[in-house]
Simulated assay, not measured.
Amino acid sequence: MIRYALHCAAGHDFESWFASGSAFDDLKARGLVACAVCGGTEVEKALMAPSVAVKEEARPLAQPRSEVEEAMAAMRREIEAKSEYVGMNFATEARRIHAGDAPERAIYGEAKLDEARKLLEDGVPVAPLPFLPARKTN
């Protein structure tokens, strides 16, 4: 996985994770990389400093968060509160819901890139989330 700092034509800065650098290039070429703020697809990589591990005691107690970070955190809370996490069964469960074989409800989870691509090709309405599930972030 690789994280890129991105910048859209409307001036919004945001970050997103990709399976690889070539995965980003492929998704961008197909118009599937969109601004997390406005949805615009004119997105470019921005200059990004490397991530350096910092001991917890060295972090400031209250780091200021940007407007985008606050919006992303709010979106995550909303999704986690109103959706069911189905883990690695996401593709199977999304397909079952789409076919009417499972109760219709909001779900989120994990899928391999080829599984997600197949869902989209088959008309199953799915979208990538701009965050990793909690179990992946620890």
Rank of each mutant, 00 (worst) to 15 (best):
P133Q: 06
E110R: 09
D122F: 00
A71R: 11
A34H: 10
K45E: 07
G39N: 01
V126P: 03
M75H: 10
L47V: 15
D122G: 03
D25S: 13
A58R: 08
M1W: 07
R59S: 08
V37Q: 09
D26W: 07
P60V: 15
P125V: 04
V86T: 10
P125H: 06
D13H: 13
A46W: 05
E42G: 12
E93Q: 12
G40A: 10
D13R: 11
G39E: 08
K112D: 14
V126G: 00
E93H: 11
A29W: 02
E115K: 02
L119R: 04
R77H: 14
A58Q: 14
A29D: 11
S16H: 14
R135F: 11
P64I: 04
E104M: 09
A9N: 10
E104T: 12
A91Y: 04
A5P: 05
M1R: 08
S22A: 14
A29V: 04
A73I: 09
K45L: 09
P50N: 04
E15Y: 01
Y108P: 02
L6K: 01
P64M: 12
A106Y: 09
G40D: 13
A111P: 05
P64Y: 07
E104W: 02
V43P: 07
A46M: 03
P60N: 03
M72G: 06
S20Q: 02
F24C: 03
L6Q: 00
A74M: 12
